[in-house]
């Protein structure tokens, strides 16, 4: 196994609120190798976005309790003082966000917004930075990049804005790109283009990518490994093939079952029943238990640990491996 680029070790992110402590992320451990693409999948409120914001150091530390370690090239980002973190943020680790319509500043030209980061981190002259910004816009397939750089975000379409965000994020050749729901706000036709673009630029810039999404279908093609999050914990991880062809956790089954398939005869989707739990009063035992059709007594007593089963593949469920394989084959994979 190659030396990891990023190692997250037992990271916990808790928000104290008037109603109690919100355990948005509750002890997750994972790593990303250089050049790897990791997909983090889960419903809203599963802690996936909070995880990425924590790695970026974008949460208000005064109002958050963060523990654990986030090692980037061996350096703990959670221990770094603000000014040192700023030299990494945007240069070594950069991020693109869910909503490109609101993620660019409406008052500044797109080119200037990209150039700003270059000037800031590289001490480049305005002109050099601008030229580089134009070059980046060309790389993300924006036609007439020199003219476009002189336009304001409102003159761009949604897909183009997300391209511009990608150009901004990759302008400094980062080692890690975090994409938080990069396609959720876009048209279906544009979604594939954006993912395709991230994938091709990733090879060109030799960056690792962490894609956060709620849509297991979207990331299948582009991810090397996938981890599934539920209620602030990782409930299953593995190589993409493991997750798609040998899924072990009932929550993963639910996610796979809710992807509509072409040629599917049934006229209904199969959503996971119920709602994600409150992160203040997480159910005892397994957090997914109230929504799980396979739950038995033990599930309400013990928290299932994340146990590796076959190679780089682990899940947190009390069902026996035979049962998991049987149910996965008979009830989940056969329908899709």
């Amino acid at each position: 196994m190659p030396v990891p680029l990023l190692e997250v070790d037992d990271m916990r992110v808790h928000f104290p609120t008037d109603d109690g402590l919100v355990k948005a992320v509750d002890g997750i451990t994972f790593s990303i190798a250089p050049g790897e693409t990791l997909g983090i999948v889960g419903e809203s409120g599963s802690g996936k976005s909070v995880s990425s914001l924590t790695i970026m150091g974008l949460l208000d530390r005064k109002r958050t309790q963060i523990s654990g370690r986030v090692l980037f090239r061996g350096q703990d980002l959670l221990e770094l003082p603000d000014d040192e973190m700023r030299t990494i943020r945007g240069a070594k680790i950069s991020m693109i966000f869910q909503d490109p319509m609101t993620s660019l500043h409406p008052y500044y030209k797109v080119g200037a917004q990209i150039a700003e980061a270059i000037i800031h981190h590289r001490d480049a002259s305005k002109k050099e930075a601008m030229n580089q910004a134009v070059e980046m816009l060309g790389k993300v397939n924006i036609p007439q990049p020199r003219d476009r750089a002189n336009q304001y975000p409102h003159e761009f379409s949604g897909g183009m804005r997300q391209r511009a965000m990608i150009a901004m994020a990759l302008a400094l050749n980062p080692d890690l790109l975090i994409a938080d729901e990069p396609t959720t706000a876009l048209d279906v036709t544009v979604q594939a283009q954006i993912l395709e673009l991230i994938d091709s630029l990733k090879s060109e810039f030799n960056a690792a990518v962490m894609i956060v999404t709620h849509d297991l279908g979207v990331v299948a093609e582009y991810c090397d490994t996938i981890q599934v999050m539920y209620a602030g914990k990782i409930v299953e991880y593995g190589r993409t093939d493991d997750i798609y062809y040998r899924p072990h956790h009932p929550y993963t089954w639910g996610l796979l079952g809710s992807i509509p398939h072409l040629g599917d005869d049934s006229d209904r989707l199969n959503p996971i029943k119920g709602l994600p739990p409150s992160l203040i009063n997480v159910p005892s035992g397994c957090a997914f238990r109230p929504r799980c059709p396979y739950a038995f007594e033990r599930c309400s007593i013990d928290v299932p640990p994340l146990i590796p089963t076959d190679g780089f593949h682990a899940d947190a469920c009390h069902l026996s491996l035979q049962d998991k394989d049987r149910i996965a084959n008979e009830e989940v994979l056969s329908t899709s």
């Binding site: 000014d83 945007g90 966000f97 909503d99 609101t102 660019l104 500043h105 700003e116 980061a117 800031h120």
Partner: peptide, 21 residues
């Protein structure tokens, strides 16, 4: 606003984020 988060994600100083953006 989201674009303020973007500005911070670029690694800009708090001062620049506040007083420019």
């Amino acid at each position: 606003e989201d674009y303020i988060r973007t500005a911070r994600a670029k690694g800009l100083s708090d001062r620049r984020v506040t007083y420019k953006h």
